[in-house]
Write a protein that binds this DNA or RNA. Sequence first.
DNA 1: TATAATATCTCTAGCGACTAGAGGTTCAAG
DNA 2: CTTGAACCTCTAGTCGCTAGAGATATTATA
Lengths: 138, 138
Amino acid sequence: MFSIGELSKQAKVKIPTIRYYESIGLLAPAERTEGNQRRYTAEGLERLGFIKHARELGFSVESISSLIELQEHPDRSCYEATELAETQLRAVRAKIRQLRSLEQELARISTGCSGDDVSENCYVLSALANHNLCNKDH
Amino acid sequence: MFSIGELSKQAKVKIPTIRYYESIGLLAPAERTEGNQRRYTAEGLERLGFIKHARELGFSVESISSLIELQEHPDRSCYEATELAETQLRAVRAKIRQLRSLEQELARISTGCSGDDVSENCYVLSALANHNLCNKDH
DNA sequence: TATAATATCTCTAGCGACTAGAGGTTCAAG
DNA sequence: CTTGAACCTCTAGTCGCTAGAGATATTATA
């Protein structure tokens, strides 16, 4: 039985975030002391670790709710959990593709004019103003 | 002189977003008709295009404000604008690195157990629960 | 010119996922 | 038993929009 501060330290999740997770139903309501303070067990730490890990992998809170529900119904869970993970993977890959094209354009833009050469036409600014100077259609 | 709807169509930026940009000072207040409706010129379209493009490149609204200010002071602008672009580039590259490691882990997780094999232990769920099953330390 | 349809106006509230702060209570160490 | 750190709830703020209500303006047609 440890306090929310201890849990926060162990799980590396901020205290207000823990309370927030409880408030939206992602964490079950914690047990309380006489004086109304939250007390947790190893189980709570595990659950919070799960949530943290999933968040770091980019799952939305909603998806995590689904995953937690799946944990409670082990029959169909594997198929659906794998599907959720694959959806997440597709989203991550799409995001990477998008960022790569941004990277290219930004790299091109920022090497376009050197900082030393203080000319009247800054290539960065004109590249931003004028989409024609850009390869991609985002 | 065209309406906000026309501007929206031309710039491919939604009407509420245009009003929002005006409200936070990113766009100068538009001229108005007798009946209080906004009217724009080609200049407004250009500015909005600049903003849109910069947003698509991931610049924050705050950075865009800076860029717009720089446009008005062409003397030091090139150096500072290039710096902003480079900062943005670094952020994009960091984000890509992070997403790549997520991609790897998600790929590993979601191929770990096939959906058909409905076992009691779903690898997706245990991988999420147990950070030790993961290569990275995020 | 009258009317109807469409477009616009302002204002408020909501989204996701937290974060920060005020003002008050409880716990644990000395 | 006192003190100070940790905890409590509640409200409001963050960012970058988006949605809706209810009122007014413009434009096209009859």
